[in-house]
Design a protein around this nucleic acid. Structure first.
Length: 794
RNA sequence: GGGCCUGUGGUCUAGUGGUUUAUGACGUCGCCUUUACACGGCGGAGGUCGGAGGUUCGAUCCCUCCCAGGCCCACCA
């Protein structure tokens, strides 16, 4: 009767090993070690409820590389942080706790957020990363809202201010009326929207009417000019005259501008402050003063006259109907156009004049390109995205946000003379609304006003290398920074990567890391983007539950670095099968190693074993080279193929006869080779599937190998054998003949085990003379006779 | 509209500095209860390597254009 085998349950085993690693501090960064440091700028995920499949995918990929480096002997610095100081966190808490920040008030809201994060959200969130098998040192942990990070972030602000890089200015900037805060270029997204394209008829001092086409009629009160194209004959006579705004009875000069497209709308455009980006550009060019009619909450003010108090969209409706009544509308076209919305809340963005803090960097574009060139990009082509972004920059970096929750901008203003007062570094972090400057202002006044605004979340997350490094004793900072690697996905090259480079250069005049490794995206099974609204989102938590983290990682390793990968259920099944297969292969090897001793190397390796080991050496070489280039998918592909085809299907079958035989020398050679190659295969797989490889290592190898965990064992070195020219061809010939015999048997519908007489020509027999005994055994040939290749059944 | 990437048997994927049987997986079909594994083994069928041109003796691979998908960016009032 067959023995009942204990089935491997990935969920249980993975939890067990994860706890083991944590308890035994396997991934602890050693502050005292003299070994070379490998430091990683782990992306701190935004606390947003749950880890999603895209996270699992890209964090798995970075973990492959980090685990490899650790086995290569580096003292790995692999911290973990969570990003929880931004709008995303605010929205999450508002949703979870069913509150509104503005209703609750500043202090109470901050208290609620911090408490909820600490006690509930963060631990649950981080647990997913542990389940994934991230090999971080969890003791090196930061959250972007904690005191440590506040201190560094505020210090960065102060330093850049002192360097003359920061300024506060009232200027047109993107504003979200819903969130009531300034937002950055990068926080906006496009939305296609249906709008009314209104053709308005204005009287002019020429006596004739001029038609203006706009989607923003409600901004009429803010109109400061009208443009027509200089070559547009229709309007030749209008240029220099004035148009009269209906309802407001204001006269507006008609001017020429090449930006007025004669083929679009009526060919005449009115310049409002501010309907869109063009309006901002024109303002500077024309040297006119803006008319501010939009309030921060998205309503119109008294300058809008009869539209006062209405929200923008209501005002639009109202003015259209009034224009209709007054007979001032020529026509209304329904158009679809793209508007800017806030990515967090979806509200239409307005451009308002507000007081904001900026980091001046538009004048650094050239340098930025150089910085990008000196980074190691993997894959290489990702650099282009950075460059395109730099070339397209139009604004300085607005770093202030009008929120309750976040890191305060550490500034007071003197009420008497307006002077900007900064705290000194040892007093950081400060809350300028609670704390007071320690000295009087230069002017003698002690009357200050604290800055109410907080820093943009990117102003802090762009400091992650420092946030992590400065958790260590100061003596180590130099060897930890610049860091070796920044891993991340390609969607945030323009935010996080770019901003981090900028900050590091402004502060330290060097890049924050040596290399960046850019992961792709997970797509749905049809190759489309996953989104909650489409309902095609895969939860990694379910995947862990059903297939295990190893299977998920195995799948994540099958995609080339930087490439997007569709999620396919079947690929997870393949991963699970792999786990079973390698467990069984290991069982076979150790079933035959009863002595409990590490098999010694025989005086002379059997020729089959020598050839097999030479194949193995090639795999080691390639795997190492590919890992150095962050090409984990090539590693996985090759070693997977080698394991499945060469090791299991062929080598194991070939040496079975010797493993079972009494010929001690030949047996010894086989066992030595089995042990060495299995351990090597395990080690190469261990960065990719850390749990099953640890399970096997602990189950079988631990008592024979010195290392406490496979993950801190040495990366495999090539086995010393006498490699000869033609080894590869010889091995291939052996496998080819084996294949042909199997084919011959299958065609005759015989069992693989069925006995045969094998015919090989003289030349082949000579070439393979020291392999013939193994070949005879594996094909179950009673005899090998000399003739053209033939399989004869007996 | 611009940039970058991708497009390989039904599905996903490897690959090539250009030329012989284009890789593997899943699926499918046939066979095999072979003592590591039936969550297995062996074998078979299945591809004009997105489309059209071009360079070449010869292109899946190089060039041009087009089409489709992904990501990023810009955007017409």
């Amino acid at each position: 009767m067959k023995k009942q085998k204990k089935q491997y349950k990935p969920q249980e085993a993975e939890e067990k090993w994860q706890k083991f690693w944590e308890k035994e501090k396997i991934f602890k960064f050693n502050e005292k070690s003299k070994k070379k440091i490998y430091s990683v700028d782990t992306p701190p995920p935004t606390v947003s409820g749950k880890m999603h499949i895209g996270h699992a995918f890209s964090y798995a990929q970075q973990d492959f590389v980090v685990r490899y480096k650790r086995m290569k002997g580096f003292n790995v610095f692999y911290p973990f942080g969570t990003d929880d100081n931004g709008l995303a966190t605010i929205r999450l808490i508002e949703k979870e706790k069913k509150v509104k920040a503005f209703d609750l008030g500043r202090e109470k809201f901050i208290e609620l957020v911090l408490k909820t994060l600490k006690e509930d959200l963060r631990p649950k969130y981080v647990a997913d990363w542990k389940k994934l098998g991230m090999s971080c040192d969890w003791d090196i942990f930061y959250t972007t809202i904690d005191e440590h990070c506040q201190r560094i972030s505020q210090r960065s602000f102060i330093e850049l201010y002192k360097k003359g890089r920061e300024y506060r200015k009232r200027s047109p900037f993107f504003w979200c009326p819903e969130c009531q805060t300034a937002i950055a270029q990068v926080e906006m997204e496009d939305k296609t929207q249906k709008s009314d394209f209104v053709y308005m008829k204005f009287d002019t001092t020429l006596g004739k009417k001029i038609v203006i086409a706009t989607t923003r009629p409600e901004l009429m009160a803010a109109c400061v000019g009208i443009f027509v194209h200089p070559k547009d004959k229709r309007y030749k006579d209008f240029v220099g005259k004035e148009a009269i705004l209906p309802f407001y009875n204001k006269k507006i000069k008609i001017k020429t501008s090449v930006d007025a497209d004669p083929d679009f709308g009526s060919g005449a455009v009115y310049h409002c402050t501010f309907g869109d980006m063009d309006d901002v550009e024109w303002l500077a060019r024309e040297g006119v003063k803006p008319i501010e009619i939009v309030n921060k909450d998205g309503t119109l003010n008294e300058k809008a006259g009869f539209l006062k108090g209405l929200k923008i969209k209501e005002a639009r409706k109202k003015i259209i109907s009034e224009l209709k009544k007054a007979g001032k509308i020529e026509k209304i076209e329904k158009i679809e156009h793209v508007v800017k919305v806030h990515e967090r809340c979806g509200a239409d963005i307005e451009i308002l004049m507000t007081e904001q803090w900026f980091i001046q960097y538009l004048n650094l574009k050239k340098q930025m390109l150089v910085w990008g060139k000196t980074l190691g990009w993997f894959p290489r082509y990702m650099r282009v995205r950075y460059e395109n972004w730099v070339k397209g920059l139009k604004w300085d970096w607005c770093i202030s946000r009008q929120r309750y929750y976040g890191i305060p901008i550490p500034v007071w203003y003197c009420k008497n003379c307006g002077e900007v007062i900064l705290p000194s570094e040892e007093d950081l972090p400060v809350d300028p609304l609670k704390d007071k400057p320690k000295k009087a202002c230069k002017c003698g006044s002690k009357d200050f006003e604290g800055e109410k605004d907080v820093l943009d979340t990117w102003a802090t997350s762009s400091l992650t290398p420092r946030l992590a490094v400065e958790l260590m004793p100061k003596a180590l900072w130099k060897s930890l920074f610049p860091m070796d690697l920044r891993p991340q996905a390609h969607d945030i090259i323009t935010f996080w990567l770019f901003n981090t480079v900028v900050k590091s250069q402004l502060h330290y005049k060097k890049n924050p890391w040596k290399d960046v490794m850019i992961s792709g995206f997970v797509l749905d099974p049809e190759g489309k983007k996953m989104s909650k609204s489409k309902g095609n989102v895969i939860a990694p938590q379910d995947v862990f539950e059903r297939y295990g983290a190893d299977a998920l990682r195995y799948w994540a390793a099958s995609s080339k670095l930087g490439e997007d990968l569709p999620y396919k259920e079947k690929d997870l099944i393949t991963g699970k099968k792999f786990v079973t297969k390698i467990l069984n292969a290991s069982r076979f090897v150790f079933m035959n190693l009863k002595s409990g001793e590490k098999p010694a190397r025989p005086k002379k390796l059997h020729e089959t074993d020598r050839l097999f080991l030479s194949q193995l050496n090639q795999i080691i070489k390639n795997a190492t080279e590919n890992f150095e280039k962050y090409e984990f998918s090539k590693v996985k592909n090759e070693v997977d193929n080698f394991f499945w085809k060469d090791f299991c299907d062929n080598y194991l079958e070939i040496v079975k006869n010797r493993v079972y035989s009494d010929n001690e020398e030949e047996k010894k050679s086989a066992l030595f080779t089995l042990y060495a190659s299995l351990l090597t295969i395990l080690k190469i797989f261990s960065p990719i599937t850390p749990f099953i490889t640890e399970e096997i290592y602990q189950r079988y190898f631990r008592k024979l190998e010195k290392d406490k965990s496979i993950h801190i064992s040495n990366w495999p070195e090539q086995v010393k054998i006498n490699e000869r020219k033609g080894d590869k061809e010889k091995y291939k010939l052996l496998i080819e003949i084996l294949g042909k015999v199997r084919q011959g048997k299958a065609r005759k519908q015989r069992s693989v085990k069925s006995p045969i007489v094998l015919y090989l020509d003289k030349k082949t027999q000579e070439k393979l003379k020291d392999l013939l005994s193994d070949l005879k055994a594996v094909t179950n040939a009673e005899e090998i006779k000399e003739d053209k290749f033939k399989v004869e059944f007996v």
